[in-house]
């Protein structure tokens, strides 16, 4: 994790940054600050062991995409999220995903899980997602750069 609590606080206090981004940063930081230096993949694997069998990344994504889709279908307010999920489902249904796409999908799903208020499951990408997100927010946000 390349950022500290003060960086996060500045992001949270910044009025130019949108609420969903803040929520993602807040939740990821909360998790990562507790799991600092831990093997995050282990947490993810613990979650995805079903009947003594470790689900593959492809299977994990399938389950999450479907359960999230169900969740947003119930609520009409999440049109954008739903659109993203449908696109992901279309890609998923082709039957194979490259490893880079898997990582990308995991990050997307983590963001969606946080926005919808669910507990995150893809711990393996949490740290990378947090750093990417912070970098992007800082880069995009002039005020923060000038601070």
């Amino acid at each position: 994790m390349d950022y500290n609590i003060d960086d996060v606080k500045s992001v949270l206090r910044d009025n130019a940054i949108k609420f969903p981004d803040k929520k993602i940063i807040y939740n990821l930081y909360s998790v990562l600050s507790k799991l600092y230096d831990n093997d995050l993949t282990k947490y993810e694997n613990d979650i995805y062991i079903i009947n003594n069998k470790l689900l593959t990344d492809y299977e994990r994504l399938g389950l999450e995409i479907e359960s999230l889709l169900k969740r947003v279908n119930e609520n009409q307010n999440n049109a954008v999220v739903r659109e993203i999920l449908i696109l992901m489902k279309q890609a998923y249904d082709k039957g194979k995903l490259s490893s880079s796409l898997i990582a990308y999908f995991k990050k997307l799903i983590t963001e969606i899980q946080i926005i919808l208020g669910e507990d995150i499951t893809f711990y393996s990408v949490a740290e990378e997602l947090f750093d990417e997100k912070m970098l992007k927010l800082i880069k995009d946000n002039k005020e923060y750069k000038e601070r």
Binding site: V31, Y43, E66, D119, I120
Partner: peptide
């Protein structure tokens, strides 16, 4: 069957999240 698996996953995820919050 799928929903039951998803339930199991969600429960485990929430257990981990809960542990993280109560240090």
């Amino acid at each position: 069957k799928k929903n039951i698996v998803v339930d199991e996953i969600k429960t485990k995820a929430s257990v981990i999240a809960k542990e993280l919050r109560q240090t």
